[in-house]
């Protein structure tokens, strides 16, 4: 029993980190309607940023500033936000899908930099021996994990509270207004580009925060932590849970990540070894199907967007969902 509990603690740490990542994405897509096709890039920038700031100094590396973990975490998040700023500045005033293309590009670029810029990222070997925050203060590693889970949960809770507050604030209502109809919002004197930019940067920073927390948990970072498939997994988590709703986003993480880890174990036991090289493709197909089918048949996910601010808005939404003309 104890073993299962200890495993669950471990599992929940990963889930919570992904939940933070998904909440960042939810701010961009669910609340603002910005399509980020390179989630993994911002996660990776946060992770590498933190790793470089807190890592031990080594002669062959540029980094290794040995900063306290909290500073590293903030630094990583800030770097991710900065990357978000660059991409968003280039694209947000243009066609909406240019942002999608540019984020896809930054994902590929970050992967290449991680792999090739040895002096900064350790190249394919990654960065090793990263200190885990306050690891020495705990008697057993499992006790440490429990405390790390508490800390990560607290941070996730803070992000959740911040986002909930933000989207209910006037700023959040403008966000949704822009998502629904940017022209109308502009006619009301709001500047859609500036507000989108803010939301995108904040979302990117939250993703970077998740990356830093992952580094603190594992104590190691390397390029294969950030494979392109992760972007699709994160998207599946968001869309299954229901975009536009933070509770749904967190639920989606539990469901998708849980099924993913279980299905891996099941497949390795059920499918004959000769076919297992295809099993990965099968799993990716399932993720793709989940995304496409949810979009087609249940666009609001398991929970869906939370109910609205005023009944007038509800009426407007009903009208939008049942368009009489298009």
């Amino acid at each position: 029993m104890l073993g299962i509990a200890l495993y669950l603690v471990f599992f929940l740490i990963v889930v919570t980190i992904y939940a933070i990542l998904v909440m960042g994405l939810n701010l961009q897509w669910g609340f603002t309607g910005l399509f980020n096709a390179g989630v993994v890039a911002f996660y990776a920038i946060g992770a590498y940023g933190t790793a470089i700031l807190i890592g031990p100094e080594r002669p062959e590396l540029i980094g290794g500033f040995e900063l306290p973990f909290a500073l590293g975490l903030l630094g990583g998040a800030a770097l991710a936000a900065l990357a978000g700023l660059v991409v968003a500045l280039a694209t947000l005033r243009l066609r909406e899908e240019y942002l999608a293309i540019a984020t896809f590009g930054i994902a590929i670029t970050v992967q290449l930099v991680a792999l090739n810029f040895d002096a900064l990222t350790g190249g394919a070997n990654g960065l090793i021996g990263l200190p885990r925050p306050m690891f020495g203060y705990f008697e057993t590693p499992n006790l440490y994990n429990v405390c790390y889970l508490v800390a990560v949960l607290a941070i996730a809770g803070a992000v959740y509270a911040l986002l909930e507050r933000a989207v209910r604030s006037p700023w959040g209502r403008v966000l949704r207004a822009i998502r629904e109809d940017a022209t109308a919002a502009r006619s009301l004197g709001k500047n859609p580009t500036a507000i989108r930019l803010q939301a995108f940067i904040l979302g990117s920073g939250i993703m970077g925060l998740a990356g830093g927390l992952y580094v603190g948990f594992i104590g190691f970072v390397s390029p294969i932590d950030f494979l392109p498939i992760l972007t699709f997994q994160i998207w599946a988590m968001l869309i299954v849970g229901g975009s536009g709703n933070n509770k749904g986003a967190v639920l989606g993480v539990l469901v998708v990540w849980g099924l993913w880890t279980i299905s891996g174990t099941l497949i390795s036991q059920v499918v004959p070894p000769s076919l297992q090289s295809q099993a990965g493709a099968g799993q990716a197909i399932i993720i793709g199907l989940v995304i496409v089918l949810t979009l087609l048949f249940r666009p609001r996910g398991l929970i869906g967007e939370e109910s609205v601010v005023s009944k007038h808005v509800r009426a407007a939404r009903v009208a939008r969902d049942n368009p009489s003309s298009s």
């Binding site: 998207w235 197909i285 793709g288 199907l289 995304i291 496409v292 979009l295 087609l296």
Partner: peptide, 10 residues
């Protein structure tokens, strides 16, 4: 765009 992203993976 999002749907095409999923279709690409498929």
């Amino acid at each position: 765009v999002f749907a095409s992203f999923g279709v690409a993976l498929l």
